[in-house]
């Protein structure tokens, strides 16, 4: 007779405990999600009692001492910085990704990909420092004079370029991954009806990986939109309506970092900053929902 193996009761109990611990962890994640939302909402109620949300979103004066919390210039600043950054980053990243995935010789591809990974891992504060050392003087002395503008270099344009560089590795690495995942037979199918490589890329590769490209762009947007420290170091930090991209401005996330020191001094301002954080959270949430819908539709349509 062989010895009976294991003690089933003991194992069952361990299974029960382990599974429930995992469940608690999982619940924690969703609770955290709601907790952040509710707490931010609760803390921003104070400023919302004083001023209506419409006034806050569309009024252009930020003057906490007078109890004025117009976010319009900051929202415009955020849109400008994020928009310009993506305008720069999307074409450059997509073109680089195609080159790396489709055109580059294997040796070069193997060399570039780790570099992109490293670039993705560089902390934002280091990006900020480098932008402050390199980009700010460049914009001040070279780029702005080209357009006949005088600037300190601490401006919306500088912040946007900094962000664009931060977004490069995110979009590139995701796109390269999805381009490489396309079955080679699909490319062969296109090539063998006499399409050139570029036509294949344009009409087949792009199309087949459009869900991943979209996801990459959304992720890049999220990074750009929520970036705090690097922008804070180069954007100028003045919450007034910018008249050109070479003017200093302020973004939502950066505003919180700028004003945190005064956070507890004025309760109303604290509440206003909580509202800003709430806006950040809600926008990220909305974009994620949008992303889920777009991805679901794209995937359903082409099954790739």
């Amino acid at each position: 007779m062989r010895k009976k193996l294991g003690n089933m009761n003991k194992r069952k109990i361990r299974d029960l405990i382990g599974t429930n611990l995992m469940l608690i962890g999982t619940l924690f994640a969703s609770v955290l999600f709601f907790l952040i939302f509710i707490l931010l909402f609760y803390r921003s109620a104070l400023v919302l009692e004083n001023t209506s949300i419409i006034d806050i979103l569309f009024s252009s004066t930020w003057n906490p001492d007078n109890g004025q919390f117009g976010l319009a210039p900051i929202i415009i600043g955020t849109i400008l910085v994020t928009g310009i950054a993506l305008l720069i980053a999307i074409p450059i990243s997509l073109l680089s990704a195609i080159y790396i995935a489709e055109y580059a010789p294997t040796k070069i591809r193997r060399m570039i990909r780790p570099f992109i990974d490293v670039l993705a891992g560089v902390p934002s504060v280091v990006y900020g420092l480098c932008a402050f050392l390199f980009l700010v003087p460049l914009v001040k002395d070279v780029i702005a004079p080209l357009f006949g503008v005088r600037t300190t270099g601490l401006c919306i344009f500088t912040a946007a370029v900094t962000l664009a560089v931060m977004v490069f590795p995110i979009i590139i690495s995701l796109c390269v991954e999805s381009f490489c995942a396309i079955p080679i037979a699909l490319k062969e199918a296109s090539l063998s009806v006499g399409a050139t490589k570029w036509e294949t890329v344009k009409k087949v590769v792009f199309r087949a990986s459009s869900p991943s490209i979209l996801a990459a762009i959304l992720l890049g947007f999220g990074r750009a939109f929520g970036e705090t420290i690097a922008i804070n170091m180069v954007v100028g930090g003045i919450p007034v309506m910018p008249s050109s991209v070479f003017q200093p401005g302020e973004t939502l996330a950066s505003l919180i970092a700028s004003k945190y020191g005064e956070l507890m001094a004025i309760p109303l301002q604290e509440s206003a900053l909580m509202l800003v954080a709430l806006i950040l959270f809600v926008v990220v949430l909305l974009f994620n929902i949008l992303g889920v819908f777009i991805l679901r539709r794209a995937k359903k349509r082409w099954n790739y």
Binding site: A29, G226, Y260, L280, V284, N288
Partner: peptide
């Protein structure tokens, strides 16, 4: 899938929001 979605949102939430959230609890 719901948990994955919340995690994706939480991934996208700017770190400054975590900062201010913890500050709130801290106070």
């Amino acid at each position: 899938n719901f948990i994955r979605f919340t995690l994706d949102v939480l991934w996208g939430v700017p770190s400054i929001v975590y900062g201010i959230f913890c500050l709130m609890i801290m106070i």
